[in-house]
Design a protein around this nucleic acid. Structure first.
Length: 595
RNA sequence: GGGCGCGUAGCUCAGUCCGGAAAGAGCGUCGGACUUCUAAUCCGACGGUCGUGGGUUCAAAUCCCAUCGCGCCCGCCA
């Protein structure tokens, strides 16, 4: 409803301005501070003062007089407060919000008939997912969810770097060393924990071996890369044996979040199908192409990038960037938009990619990156190769353990008599534990650096997932108590929506809650435009505050509540439930029925 | 050295893109609220030269310039 109201206010204000022969290029629309009654305001009078030859408050008065609120649907009144114009919501605004909110898909925007591929995580299949990279699947999954609810047709891709030197090293190590050569036991009973030991062993060997041994190993690694480049089936199969196993383990870890993918796209695909070769040929034709020091490169200085992009090594093999160009042209062929979630260290490459794609004649309008900075440990960076870092599995285990402890501690002083059984405790521990980890990461601007600390990552206090989840559980508790199904829209249940009177929701707490619910679709819209899921997290916090105020002030099921008020409040609780459930689902945080 | 990002309360962060109404939360500290639809909740108090210095503007945390601190990048690695 907020979006409709904004459109209406803009039109009305623009009309008034042109009627008074004022410029209409800047309407000065803004959201007022909390203690102001209106839902939308304008500060346009400031700018008009000199032109009108009158002080701003007087100009505001003129504008307010010019607009007839009776002709507006969602605005009941236009007040001036000094130089500000305040637009107050009408009964229809509240009534329509209440009805719309009772639909279980509230917040989902209209289908835009536009496809978008969200590529995220894409971690090299070298070993267990560690916390340093955990921001990627969590942010990526939320971005995908966000675009989905905002009306886009979303596919989620994991780009598998199976053609790089790292995988050749891994393959060589896997084939060369035996179990006996490895250091220690796998840290966990899953395949990537087992195999990463070969990778670490191989890297250590290359660092410490004698010159001759190292050269022999390098020759083997080189031959694997050449084999891949030549489209040699046996080289592909050798590498795949490692890649597929490690990747399957990593999928298992990511599924715990859960972060699921529609497709795992291997970069060798673009070597095997000839796209990379074709692309190299086209790159050579560009004006920017130069052949220097036996390697083909692109000079991008004229495009504001002073680092050359090498696209063909002196030994004739392609590079990651070359294949990624082919990969992205493939994305352009199949999708309207392409969003990639990347660590900030890939920023320069992203610019090179974008610029080069454009030079190749692509429209890169639909290509966007979401950049985040890595999570570091207090003692420094995490690294799979060196084996430093906290595994995501360990973080999730610890989160669940602590959440379980929390549930058990609270068991004794529960008021609600709903007898949580073992399954409930386990369910809540998972929902809260994993939710807390995801929420902590997704609620912050991705560009801010994070230093990982256990205590901070696993804080279940306010401004965390459980705080918001608790609101959801409260909503469900009330609805269930009233004999309603929390998960289903009210339209199909035993409650008459037509006879609902939003004006029965007259207290300040009810109005504030309803206004907050009304804003949800607009928040989705803006967050999706900006590719910023943390805006949804910020919203859930405000929402939870508003709901808790309502919960405190307004009993729903108490005996002395008028039956009609009770119905209206039930509808408000249902609308709240769907709002918070859908907001949480964007964040990938599960909404518990009870906790 | 150059490019990019970050700097808001003791701590963790919103707000910055698109300038407007005495800067907002949470944690921590202190003090309150469970015979009530769930106290993982709520209420109150304390706490801020928005890194610093200039500039633009009727108005700057927000825009511009400079400067300091931290991070990332500047590979024929990915």
């Amino acid at each position: 409803m907020f979006l409709s109201l904004r459109t209406e206010v803009e039109a009305a204000l623009e009309g008034a301005l042109s009627e008074l022969e004022f410029p209409t290029d800047d309407l000065g629309i803004e959201e007022p501070p909390e203690d102001v009654e209106s839902v939308l305001a304008s500060s346009v009078a400031f700018r008009l003062a000199s032109e009108a030859g009158a002080p701003p408050p007087q100009v505001a008065g003129q504008l307010a007089d010019e607009i007839d609120a009776d002709e507006l649907t969602y605005v009941s009144e236009i007040q001036t407060q000094g130089p500000y114009l305040n637009f107050l919501p009408s009964d229809a605004y509240f009534a329509e919000t209440l009805t719309a909110g009772t639909d279980e898909s509230y917040g989902a925007l209209e289908d835009r008939e536009e496809s978008v591929v969200v590529e995220h995580t894409s971690a090299n299949p070298t070993g267990p997912v560690h916390v340093g990279r955990a921001r990627n699947p969590i942010i990526g999954d939320a971005v995908a969810n966000l675009l989905d609810i905002a009306g886009y047709d979303v596919d989620r891709h994991y780009y598998v770097n199976d053609a790089g030197r790292q995988m050749a090293v891994f393959t060589w190590a896997y084939e060369t060393f035996d179990e006996d050569d490895l250091d220690g036991e796998p840290e966990r009973d899953r395949i990537e924990y087992d195999l990463v030991r070969y990778y670490r062993k191989g890297n250590a060997y290359l660092e410490n071996a004698s010159e001759a041994d190292r050269e022999a190993a390098e020759a083997e690694i080189e031959s694997i890369m050449q084999g891949l480049e030549a489209g040699d089936e046996s080289a592909y199969e050798r590498v795949s044996e490692v890649v597929d196993q490690v990747l399957s383990g990593m999928k298992g870890c990511l599924a715990r979040l859960p972060a699921e993918f529609d497709e795992f796209v291997k970069e060798t695909r673009f070597m095997r199908n000839g796209d990379t070769n074709d692309l190299v040929a086209r790159l050579k034709e560009l004006d920017e192409a130069v052949y220097e020091e036996d390697a083909w490169q692109l000079e991008l200085e004229a495009h504001g990038i002073d680092k050359n992009l090498v696209f063909l090594r002196s030994d004739g093999t392609s590079l990651y960037a070359t294949r990624d160009l082919a990969h992205h042209e493939w994305k352009f062929d199949n999708y309207d938009r392409a969003v990639t979630v990347l660590g900030e260290d890939h920023k320069l490459q992203a610019r090179q990619l974008d610029t080069t794609l454009e030079l190749l004649g692509n429209d890169t309008e639909g290509l966007q990156q979401v950049l985040y900075s890595y999570v570091n440990l207090p003692e420094g960076k995490m690294s799979t190769r060196r084996g430093t870092g906290v595994d995501l599995d360990d973080l999730l285990d610890e989160a669940i353990d602590r959440a379980r402890q929390e549930v058990e501690d609270r068991l004794d002083d529960r008021i609600r008599d709903d007898d949580l059984d073992e399954d409930d405790i386990e369910r809540i521990a998972h929902q809260v534990g994993i939710g807390a980890v995801r929420y902590d990461i997704v609620s912050k601007q991705p560009t801010k650096a994070i230093t990982f600390e256990w205590e901070q990552a696993l804080d279940f206090e306010a401004q965390s997932a459980p705080y918001v989840q608790y609101v959801h559980a409260r909503c469900c508790g009330i609805l269930e108590e009233a004999g309603l199904d929390p998960d289903t829209g009210l339209a199909t249940q035993d409650i008459e929506l037509e006879s609902l009177e939003a004006d029965l929701l007259a207290t300040e707490a009810e109005r504030d809650l309803l206004e907050t619910i009304a804003r949800f679709p607009a928040v989705v819209d803006e967050a999706a435009d900006d590719l910023e899921p943390h805006q949804i997290a910020t919203y859930t916090r405000t929402f939870a505050d508003r709901f808790n105020a309502f919960y405190r002030e307004c009993p729903v099921l108490a005996d002395d509540v008028d039956p009609e008020v009770r119905e209206a409040r039930l509808a408000l609780v249902a609308a709240s439930k769907h709002t918070v459930a859908n907001a949480l689902s964007v964040l990938g945080v599960e909404p518990p029925r009870s906790m």
